[in-house]
Design a protein around this nucleic acid. Structure first.
Lengths: 229, 229
DNA sequence: CCAAAAGTGTTTCACGTACACCCATGC
DNA sequence: GCATGGGTGTACGTGAAACACTTTTGG
């Protein structure tokens, strides 16, 4: 069945850069393309937007299909609309990025024939389409936003230690931080809840566990307090 | 003539929030709609994207049609894709915002039948579609970015005084600043070029004129210096 | 000479940064 | 008892913020 319109339209897709933190290594999901164009190359997961489906929903659907996850952090990144970005025809793509926590969720093995894999962000191959651009922009956004928005917690387990939190910042921002200063600062914001629990099964002194207190964060926000690490 | 595709597609438009600074008053261009839906209401200028036209070009075209201007600051803002945002059908809109300098450019009187007007941002009526959302997001982006990116100069004449620069910041950020501290800080960055010229025809002591030195700014950027007002 | 805006330094306080040692636990 | 990471305080310097008067010019 054909679908007809009075004027021609570009096609519309969403692409979703899915970040995960795996024991202090930042990774993204890539998919090996099984069909032309760019058959055999790796690409960021994505798909077409259906009329009647919001683009946010389309991105969430894409994420669910790749990971089985719902309710994860998902944010629109940028829209890529150069006419030649897809060799077949003009396809405009709205890119999103997602932050998932690899340690708590067992991810689906992908069910269809395509092969899917996590790649360390330091080891990204040449990708199909303009997907290297999309990836670079997603990473830049993550780095930029991490410093003044509490999005990093999305990459960690719900209960985490201050050392895990610091390692995450160091990994993503690619610079070492001073342990005492980091703790002083992050605790001073008041949005970390001390759970009065400690790690179990570690071969050294067990660390205290914290969680992100969204309530407290919102209260801080409303007072107009500017948080920055 | 009809255009047919194997799968249905949402339509794609660009909308362009055009900001101008008029003697310390921040304004945007709105257009009165002549046709349904929302006939008679004000809206942000926009139009459909043709296949083969990049979305950036479509936004630039829209801007040119409304103002006659090219080569002005234009940045992609966000893509709005809720299926019900247009009552007719699913229309996805990529929003942009532009910064133009009202004092140097005489703007076209609009040539077609639609009426076009500058509205002060403190006096925006209820707009068609979800355009109030788009406007609010554009304003928030402008406010946020002004503090750490040299975009404010786009709103001023090429040669400006430090007082004009300060007033612009005060207007957009909606808070008063200390004259001495402002000057000390902005000059310390080193990206303002003292033109060794002074104002003419003012009924008081004439101020020195400066221009934004993009070269110097890029040099500063490359050294990794973080600028913030 | 008066009105109006330009231009200019110093003090104070908060916060960022640098830095080293003892503690608890499992093996 | 030893290896491993957890946890803590202080001194110093930089930069933000507060603050008022003199200068220049046109009318």
């Amino acid at each position: 069945m054909k679908h007809s319109y009075d004027y021609p339209r570009p096609a519309l897709t969403v692409d979703c850069v899915i970040f995960g933190l795996d024991d202090s290594d930042l990774k993204v999901i890539l998919i090996e393309r099984g069909i032309d164009p760019f058959e055999g190359m790796w690409a960021i997961p994505g798909g077409f937007v259906s009329p009647g489906e919001s683009i946010d929903d389309a991105a969430a659907r894409e994420l669910r299909e790749e990971t089985g996850l719902t309710n994860v952090y998902l944010e629109q990144l940028y829209t890529f609309g150069a006419p030649k970005r897809d060799p077949r025809e003009h396809i405009v793509s709205v890119a999103y990025y997602a932050l998932v926590n690899l340690t708590e969720h067992k991810l689906h093995a992908t069910t269809d024939a395509r092969s899917t894999a996590w790649f360390s962000i330091n080891d990204i191959p040449k990708l199909a389409f303009d997907h290297n651009n999309i990836f670079e922009m997603a990473l830049a956004r993550l780095k930029g936003k991490l410093r003044y928005q509490p999005i990093g917690f999305e990459l960690l387990p719900r209960k985490f230690t201050l050392t895990q939190l610091q390692k995450m910042h160091e990994t993503i921002l690619e610079k070492p931080m001073d342990k005492r200063n980091f703790r002083k600062k992050i605790l001073s914001f008041g949005f970390l809840k001390d759970l009065n629990q400690i790690q179990k099964g570690v071969a050294h002194r067990a660390a205290r566990l914290y969680s992100f207190d969204e309530r407290a964060y919102r209260r801080m926000q409303k007072k107009g307090v500017h948080f920055e690490i």
